[in-house]
Design a binder for these strands. Structure first.
Length: 558
RNA sequence: GCGCCCGUAGCUCAGCUGGAUAGAGCAACGGACUUCUAAUCCGUAGGCCGGGGGUUCGAAUCCCUCCGGGCGCACCA
């Protein structure tokens, strides 16, 4: 519908530019939706935008535009008028709107998809939690946003790869191995204190018990280095498995599990650090490194960052940052046109230094972007649920999903802009009532299915033969809302903002519920019923396509 | 001190690539079930869009500044 307005206005402007012999009139006609109903269905501010170029007052330009509209306007509009400072308001014929339903039906499951991305390869890296413990609610937000963004990009014609970066080497993993080994030794009465920053969670003891069950006391004979290494790998395997399980429970499946140990630090058998050496040499060849105070620094300040950063510590070991550069260099080398990272907001300081590094390597850092996820506070009875990962006392993502279910978890984490802090109200999430926005949308879908079951009993079938019968204001509003869906998906894709879609679906559900209460679908008038069934079938398509993009189920009944 | 995010109705938040009289949900109050699902709908009430300045035909939206909250600023990851 918007495209129609855009087309006829553009044509009109073309006509004007010919008649008045003004060359440079080309503008992008932006079609808006007025807030007030008496301002019509669509409006355009183009007259105000080009008034200067023509040298007339905006309202006069608006008049010109209206006069020069192509004849097609007869079929489209009831009324076109000038308002305010120079807005042009279009009142569209009901039939023209309602006929657009056919596009929804014809496209079906594909309605809302586009070729915006033109098959461009995109890498979305998200979660990437260290396999040193269970996922918490912050990871869950990251996971759900990353997944929804991926789904939306996929629907928008991008070739998306979802990747989890396994941070499986370095200090944290060693610490985990040591912690498990200490718990293991405890099982044989060899008590020893956990290190200050060791892992204190109960699951560490569980893993130790599993090792005991498998290996008996044989680890006690190994050198502590060997034993710790074994514990580390055992724990990693167990925890990674748990992470995969947790993610699968909320409908998240990755295409790639990219191991730092194997891909960055060097494959098994390869000399450790090879990739790191390569990237270091590459950076060196660009002249952006500097030996200082016994360490090797990347001169990030030369690339706009606030400070320089150490790549090789004075003890000769590489920093995480060096590995990160290598990893992202590798993402570019793998041929991705755009590279999206979903990071916790506490990592925002790393964006500029990584961009600096990419630029220093001659890469186009505008192809790299980061979606920052602000913190989640779990609320219960109006109070924040206290958590301490250090002490091992925290509510895991699994706890939350077990309590409120996957659909609710996903929706709650998606309904807010990811750059806003989020209060996750467990009490509200648990309520199966009107207060809970997830059910509001799902209920609309279930209601539609229910109507179709009813229609099946009476033998009335949907039909597009008499769409002209659909002219109740609630019907027109509903159809107009449905037609916005492709645009909303595109918006969400471009802004990497699934919450826009979540909001939209609430609006669709609302328009539907209003309609339901106002107009009876299955009734004696078979033609009317057929047309209305056709309409709500389109509503169903939009709701189910939209929910799918959010990874939320569309139930048959509730 | 420097950087990023946030500040909109009692609460939680949309709107922010500038448009007309600023929205939703919840909470409050009053109504609608013999009907295709009341997990719904209708109505009432609720606002110096944190403060101040600027940019322009027009600012919640852009710029500056101040205030308040969160998070970063390692030879940790």
């Amino acid at each position: 519908m918007k495209e129609d307005i855009q087309r006829v206005v553009s044509q009109s402007i073309e006509n004007i530019s010919k008649t008045l012999d003004i060359a440079d009139l080309a503008v992008v006609v932006e079609v808006g939706i007025p807030k007030r109903k008496d301002f019509g269905d669509f409006s355009v501010n183009t007259a105000m935008v080009i008034a200067n170029k023509i040298g007339k007052k905006p309202r006069e330009v608006a008049e010109l535009i209206i006069e020069n509209l192509p004849v097609e306007k007869e079929q489209l509009f009831k009324k076109v008028e000038i308002a305010g400072a120079g807005f042009i308001n279009f009142h569209v014929k009901e039939e023209a709107i309602v006929n657009k339903l056919r596009e929804i039906e014809e496209n079906g499951e594909r309605f809302g998809t586009s070729d915006l991305g033109k098959g461009e390869r995109v890498l979305v890296e998200f979660v990437s939690a260290n396999p040193t413990g269970f996922l918490h609610i912050g990871h869950a937000r990251n996971a759900v946003v990353g997944d929804a963004v991926s789904r939306i990009l996929d629907a928008s014609g991008y070739d998306v790869v979802k990747e989890f970066y396994i941070n499986d080497s370095g200090r944290q993993m060693n610490l985990l191995g040591e912690s498990v080994l200490i718990r293991y030794k405890e099982l044989f009465e060899q008590n020893q204190d956990l290190p200050e920053d060791g892992y204190k969670g109960e699951y560490v003891k569980d893993i130790a018990s599993q090792i005991k069950a498998e290996k008996g006391d044989s680890l006690l004979e190994d050198s502590s280095e060997q034993a710790s290494e074994y514990c580390k790998e055992f724990a990693e395997a167990v925890l990674l498995d748990e992470i995969k399980k947790d993610l699968a429970d909320i409908n998240i499946f990755f295409d790639e599990w990219y191991s730092e140990k194997e891909n960055i630090r060097g494959a098994v058998g390869e000399s450790d650090g090879s990739k790191l050496d390569q990237i270091k040499d590459l950076l060196n060849s660009k002249g952006v490194l500097e030996q200082r105070e016994g360490a090797l620094w990347f001169k990030a300040t030369e690339f706009g960052d606030a400070q320089d950063w150490v790549l090789i510590k004075s003890d000769g070991s590489p920093t995480y940052f060096l590995a990160d550069i290598a990893y992202h260099y590798d993402k570019f080398k793998r041929g991705f046109k755009s590279i999206i990272n979903v990071w916790g907001a506490d990592h925002h300081g790393h964006v500029s230094r990584l961009k600096a590094a990419l630029r220093s390597l001659g890469l186009d850092d505008s192809r790299f972007s980061v979606v920052l996820i602000q913190f989640v506070r779990l609320m219960r009875q109006g109070k924040e649920v206290a958590m301490s990962k250090r002490a091992g006392t925290y509510v895991t993502m699994r706890d939350v999903v077990d309590e409120v279910g996957s659909d609710v978890t996903r929706f709650f984490l998606l309904m807010r802009s990811s750059e806003s802090h989020l209060d996750f109200d467990l009490d509200l999430a648990k309520k199966e009532s009107s207060e809970n926005p997830v059910y509001y949308i799902q209920y609309a879908h279930a209601r539609i299915r229910s109507i179709f079951r009813k229609a099946g009993e009476t033998g009335i079938v949907e039909s597009k033969e008499h769409l002209e019968l659909l002219k109740a204001p609630e019907e027109i509003e509903l159809v107009k809302k449905l037609l916005l869906f492709p645009e909303v998906v595109e918006d969400s894709a471009q802004a990497r903002a699934p919450h826009k879609l979540a909001y939209y679906l609430q609006e669709v559900a609302s328009e539907f519920h209003v309609y339901y209460n106002k107009c009876r679908v299955v009734d004696d008038d078979r033609q009317m019923s057929g047309a209305r069934l056709y309409l709500i079938s389109c509503v169903q398509t939009v709701l189910s396509n939209g929910l799918k993009l959010l990874g939320i189920s569309a139930p048959e009944r509730m």
